[in-house]
Design a protein around this nucleic acid. Structure first.
Lengths: 341, 341
DNA sequence: CTGAAAGCGCTAACAA
DNA sequence: TTGTTAGCGCTTTCAG
């Protein structure tokens, strides 16, 4: 049996509260008794029981993280930021992965109150009106990352603007035939991509480039799906000269297709991604970096502030986007031949 | 203030113990009173406080997972298995990421006893003798995945045999000039790769192929490092015709190099990996699948069995390896020209 | 089948 | 500065 605070008190011949005080670094303990207590603690190999502490102070000292898939690099990268920010605090990080809408709803329900966690970081899953109300009613501290709800604090990026910038970057290089590939846009699951698409449309419009529906492809999320989209695009009678991929994973799928089919990037096709995952850096992918890791850090900071100050703001925090120019965007082939003529 | 068990008892006009009984599905409650209690619970929106429960039963209902990096796909894949296995249980999964040896030692120390977690799943980090003793002394349930210690339960694969099989596969295709690339082999951090190397050596030996030290490269862990190794190998005066990469990440680095330098895989170079991460499937990489996801599942199963039966076996569980033949291994170029001559 | 009461190990008034 | 005491909300004997 492990020693308890009572054992320590007895051993040090002090009151149990005094032990608690030295445990919690209370200033109102004489140096003398502190030493005695410390000695007893040491002698008995005493370790305070965190559960008892939690019950007593009425907090769980636990932060829950709910994310959609543990597989996609962008979620893992955000998780890394969260984990890193949390490890210097007194909070434990408990992980919930919701791979289906049902599971998501179940978690939203079972974690809607304060009994298991002091707060929740929810990644890329906008709650419904009802679910948001439950969080509030349950007094659960929530922060949304990459999702938005008028009643809840959230961290987002300007996806519209990001989409616009990405497309503009392509246009500036001289591209006019610009494709857009993404997940299915009409799901409520991941609305960001829809905004990126709108940004894309806007950039085209601003530059008087007509939108061509054969240049817009959507499908199941995933790298291999993106590869197939790339194939379709390349096989078009009048193929695009550039692709704006709504995520780096999509962009990498395009790169895959190119690598396997003797297509040169960016000579035969320019590609710009979105996210700034680690592989993008490595693959020299030009992309819009949305600072995933930092968003995790920031999420923790905001949540902890909420927890300590017990006030929160529902005006979304915007993380700035950064265009990272690497090697996958260049002028279109025809512009080169034109200029060299 | 949330309702407590006492409120429910009062409301249902029963004793507090009775409420506890219906909460825990005790059979010794009359249907009649059960209904009354259930009604009260419903009416008061009562939610049992898990912390109080944990304190009372003396368990944390928490499993800790310690892993080296949250970035490498193989760890994430194992984590997925763990998370999945745990989500149907009453245990919470709390995450610890040890990115440095110091951090690892700190976690091993602070989690060496039962106060924060009921058990630990440790991935790819063999504890020292001293650390293992602490776990045992602290009565902490531990299972090692991809690491081994004589006093602790562990889940491993036969890395030696895997290395041998991978190499043999290359040899069977007619290769004689086979390179091996890996992390630095001499660290105590990730000993598996050393065994894979030994398996490689053995396969060469068995087939009377002399080991050529210029064909063995090691370096920092990582895809881009592997890419550089591929470059060195290709630039050798007498380059190898096949590469056994000690991890899929290494293998993908080789693929990267090939894609960027007009090298055809497997025509110009055969590549076999090790791990069976998801990208390997997607990239059609031939590899030795060590069933990462399943290892996570299995780790949880064993740990939970330990917890419930309070007995454990330190004889390592071996997960079988599977050779997955995909598109990156073929006969060497010279053998083709030979046979066609 | 049910209830009273004694903890689980800690924190935090309150009094001294 | 210190000790006593009353909880935190649950489980679990033990009587009835």
């Amino acid at each position: 049996m492990p020693a308890t605070i009572r054992d320590v008190a007895r051993h040090a011949k002090v009151g149990i509260a005094t032990v608690s005080r030295v445990l919690n670094d209370s200033p109102s303990v004489s140096d003398d008794t502190r030493q005695k207590v410390l000695a007893a603690i040491d002698e008995l190999d005493y370790i305070p029981n965190p559960i008892a502490r939690k019950l007593s102070i009425g907090r769980t000292l636990t932060i829950g993280v709910i994310l959609p898939y543990l597989t996609l690099p962008s979620y893992v990268e955000r998780l890394r930021g969260i984990q890193h920010a949390l490890e210097e605090t007194e909070y434990d990080l408990v992980l919930f992965s919701a791979e289906t809408p049902d599971q998501r709803d179940a978690y939203f329900e079972s974690l809607s109150h304060r009994s298991r966690t002091d707060g929740l970081i929810i990644i890329s899953m906008p709650p419904t009106e009802e679910q948001a109300d439950r969080f509030i009613k349950g007094n659960q501290c929530v922060i949304l990352i990459d999702a938005i709800h008028p009643k809840l604090p959230c961290i987002i990026v300007d996806d519209f603007e990001g989409g616009r910038i990405a497309t503009e970057q392509l246009i500036n290089q001289g591209h006019k035939k610009i494709a857009f590939i993404s997940d299915y846009l009409e799901t409520p699951f991941h609305p960001s991509m829809r905004y990126r698409f709108h940004g894309y449309r806007r950039a085209l419009e601003d530059n008087n480039i007509p939108f061509r529906s054969e240049y817009q492809l959507q499908g199941e999320r995933g790298r291999s799906q993106a590869r197939e989209m790339a194939r379709s695009l390349f096989c078009l009678p009048d193929p695009p000269t550039a692709i704006f991929a709504a995520s780096d994973t999509h962009a990498i799928g395009v790169l895959d297709y190119a690598a396997d089919n003797q297509k040169r990037i960016p000579q035969d096709m320019s590609v710009i991604g979105f996210d700034g995952i680690r592989d993008a850096e490595y693959l020299k992918l030009t992309t819009i970096d949305q600072h995933l890791y930092e968003s995790g850090l920031e999420g923790v900071n905001i949540l902890l502030k909420q927890l300590s100050e017990n006030k929160f703001s529902t005006s979304p925090i915007q993380i700035p986007l950064t265009l990272v120019s690497r090697n996958t965007v260049g002028p279109p082939a025809d512009s080169i031949s034109t200029s060299s003529t």
